[in-house]
């Protein structure tokens, strides 16, 4: 538990306000962001269009012809004051990931750079639940934190060729899951058969910021079996009992 601190209010033009709680990757700061997001979604002031939670700030998109900046700041400030922030997490998901070739394209490179064995890299990545801090950059792309320090590796100076859809990557002490094929400066160490954006499901995005992913290694055959089920619309990640 933590008392809410006073956030900074920053303008992103006349139609977006950034409520910034800090400048580091921290579960308590992120919990403050998510608590404000939840409060504004539950009781949105007129003129608030949508909110975008990120690691340490909430971007509030608004219509300034319906709510002026000062009133929006007041509304956000009182929502922060009234909110009880707890760093408890949402759902923990057992999240399948194949760390074998052809999926784990950069695993050998990562192991070499970090002076670890392949198995040690996988053990570290699967050994502890990773917090979902935010979605961003591309549809359904998850940004995770809580990666063990021994896996901290800088981003590449030059992006590598496009990674496969579902690629699980690490860089800068973080991890991402990227549903779309795209070039990346991160290191691809595995691939998940789960779909983070599935338009035919009732809920196309079933993971929420504040949830945790505990990656579970699966072999290539299991990956394909799960991918087929996911392709039919099934959620193949499993809620963790504990």
């Amino acid at each position: 538990m933590s008392l809410p601190t006073t956030p900074r209010f920053l303008d992103a033009g006349e139609t977006a306000l950034v409520v910034e709680f800090g400048d580091v990757v921290d579960p308590v700061i992120n919990a403050q962001v998510l608590a404000l997001d939840t409060a504004l979604r539950a009781d949105p002031p007129k003129g608030v269009r949508e909110c975008v939670p990120t690691y340490r700030s909430l971007m509030i998109h608004y219509d300034p012809l319906q709510i002026d900046r000062a009133r929006l700041v007041d509304a956000a400030r009182s929502a922060v004051a009234d909110t009880i922030v707890s760093a408890t997490v949402g759902t923990t998901w057992r999240f399948p990931c194949c760390y074998e070739l052809p999926f784990a394209e950069d695993l050998d490179e990562v192991a070499g750079l970090l002076k670890l064995s392949r198995d040690e890299v996988v053990r570290l990545h699967t050994g502890t639940p990773l917090r979902v801090y935010m979605y961003g950059f591309s549809p359904g792309q998850l940004y995770l934190g809580g990666v063990p320090e021994r896996l901290a590796i800088s981003r590449r100076a030059e992006p590598r060729p496009p990674q496969p859809a579902g690629g699980v990557s690490i860089a800068g002490g973080l991890s991402v899951v990227v549903p779309f094929v795209m070039p990346t400066g991160w290191y691809v160490i595995g691939c998940t058969p789960e779909r983070l954006y599935a338009p035919e499901r009732d809920n196309p995005f079933f993971i929420q910021p504040g949830d945790q992913l505990r990656f579970e290694p699966v072999d290539v055959a299991t990956y394909h079996a799960l991918a087929e089920r996911a392709g039919r619309g099934e959620v193949v990640a499993r809620k963790s009992a504990a």
Binding site: A16, E20, D23, V52, R56
Partner: peptide, 11 residues
């Protein structure tokens, strides 16, 4: 380098 945050149109 900043921690990724929201981007408004026109940023």
């Amino acid at each position: 380098n900043i921690l990724s945050d929201g981007i408004a149109m026109g940023a």
